[in-house]
Design a protein around this nucleic acid. Structure first.
Length: 470
DNA sequence: TATATATTTGA
DNA sequence: CAAATATAT
């Protein structure tokens, strides 16, 4: 019997470490150190995913064991008490997780308990896609070409027999509960402000099926328009592994086969390309674990980021006077999720208009996003900040007014999140920074004037990077 | 996965 | 003269 340690693979199907066919007892450990880096939206989402996972095990005649504490101590102890043959888990590639897993492995080794870890969460594992010289790629496009042309593994099926610990003849388990999950409050978190979307494998499959049955075919055409709501919404599921990545791949491949036109098939490619970004940033983080605190790209001199607590607060509150930015920041608060185009817009606003260090924005995402993922968010922030892969400062300054006009021309998305602008014609919304004070007050007395002058800040940003280049 | 500006095109 | 396109940053 294997003790399966669940971490970011909160599902039973298409789960590599669970697929050996061996009888299994599953366990989840609430790790204080990991929770110390977490935040309410994400933990709330995770608890709901765990409930769903527990339900899957109960349907299979077992239950999910729940422990609290340090996995380096809990896993050897539980494995010993159960008399498990092996402890198995699926790999996590962030620096912290790699260190912890190595320590868990050492602790198990010391107790003479066999353990085994598996690649599971990505289509292509970190380090498997490299340049012909064997180096990690630092430019996505080349990575993408190799990624696309490489065969993908098949999905794994259901787990072997789930053992009901209650019916085992084992000495009493110490401090381990059968399926009793803590509440957010038990874990010391406030209720999140945001409305957290439903979690769990069933929801994930429904989302994937619905997406592949329709929106995936217009993904290429519509994905940049936040009001369209045509994206998959799978991000928190991929973060917590409530769906297997191979199953996602196969379902999209099927959609590509079913496509009626070439354009429809190309649109599916466009979505799959986003899955490649996920693998790409996992490669980047695996190669350079320091990117969580350091710039990926070396500049000769320090970038002279500004200290602007008031600006940062206005950004967090969605009170910058740039409508598309404010809409995005308010969506973040309300839904713990933001449309990706808007994530890029608000990130370039913080870094190129407020000239504030990307780390501040990354920290805020980490606190507020249900789908926060170290590799993806860090990659995204550093890309926006021109400190990451494929850094091209001049190419990465968005004009927040133009972006709003181009991607939300009817201001439908903006008005959804910024009610002060409800009755303002979209044309005026997209000219907000050019209107005079009297007209702004007349149109929307409660909505702020732009807190910075974009064209001025654009010049400042360019010289900030010129200076850093040396 | 951009923007501003110069230049060309075409209604 | 507005819109499309090329080019520099």
């Amino acid at each position: 019997m294997n003790l399966h340690w669940h971490r970011r693979d909160l599902r039973v199907e298409d789960n590599r470490a669970l697929s050996s066919g061996d009888p299994v007892v599953p366990v989840f450990v609430f790790d204080r150190e990991v929770l110390g880096h977490a935040a309410p939206p994400r933990v709330s989402y995770m608890l709901s995913a765990l409930e769903s996972l527990r339900e899957s095990y109960r349907k299979r005649g077992g239950d999910l064991l729940v422990a609290h504490g340090d996995p380096r101590e809990e896993l050897p102890r539980i494995a010993a008490e159960l008399g498990a043959e092996r402890v198995v888990w699926n790999r996590d590639y962030s620096g912290l997780a790699k260190r912890r897993d190595a320590e868990v492995r050492d602790a198990l080794d010391e107790d003479g308990i066999v353990c085994q870890s598996f690649h599971d969460s990505l289509l292509h594992t970190p380090g498997s896609i490299t340049t012909n010289q064997g180096d990690y790629y630092s430019v996505f496009t080349y990575f993408w070409k190799k990624w696309r042309d490489r065969g993908k593994g098949e999905s794994f099926g259901a787990p072997g027999k789930v053992v009901d610990v209650g019916e085992m003849e084992v000495a009493e388990l110490t401090d381990v509960e059968s399926g009793d999950l803590p509440t957010l409050a038990d874990l010391g978190f406030e209720e999140p402000v945001a409305e957290i979307p439903p979690a769990g494998a069933e929801t994930a499959r429904e989302l994937l099926a619905a997406f592949c049955d329709g929106d995936v075919y217009s993904y290429d055409e519509k994905r940049d328009y936040p009001a369209q709501e045509c994206t998959s919404r799978l991000s928190p599921h991929l973060k917590f592994g409530t769906i297997g990545i191979r199953e996602v791949w196969e379902t999209t491949e099927q959609a590509k086969n079913d496509a009626q036109t070439e354009a429809d098939a190309d649109s599916v490619d466009g979505f799959q390309r986003q899955l490649a970004w996920r693998d790409f940033y996992a490669h980047v983080l695996d190669n350079r674990p320091d990117v969580v605190v350091e710039n990926y790209k070396d500049y000769q001199y320090d970038i002279a980021w500004r200290d602007d607590p008031e600006g940062v607060q206005a950004w967090k509150d969605g009170e910058t006077g740039y409508p598309i930015v404010d809409a995005g920041m308010r969506q973040l608060r309300e839904e713990a999720w933001v449309h990706n185009r808007v994530r890029m817009i608000v990130a370039t606003f913080l870094t190129k208009d407020l000239l504030v260090d990307w780390r501040e924005g990354y920290d805020w995402y980490r606190q507020k996003l249900a789908d926060h993922d170290t590799a993806n968010d860090n990659g995204g922030w550093q890309w926006a900040a021109s400190t990451g892969t494929d850094a091209q400062p001049y190419f990465r300054i968005f004009n927040p007014m133009t972006q709003g006009e181009r991607f939300d021309s009817d201001a439908e998305y903006i008005k959804r999140f910024v009610p002060e602008l409800q009755d303002v014609p979209s044309k005026k919304i997209h000219e907000w920074n050019d209107l005079d004070e009297a007209e702004r007050t007349d149109l929307a007395p409660d909505y702020p004037a732009p807190i910075v002058d974009h064209s001025e800040r654009r010049e400042d940003a360019i010289s900030m990077f010129e200076n850093a280049k040396g």
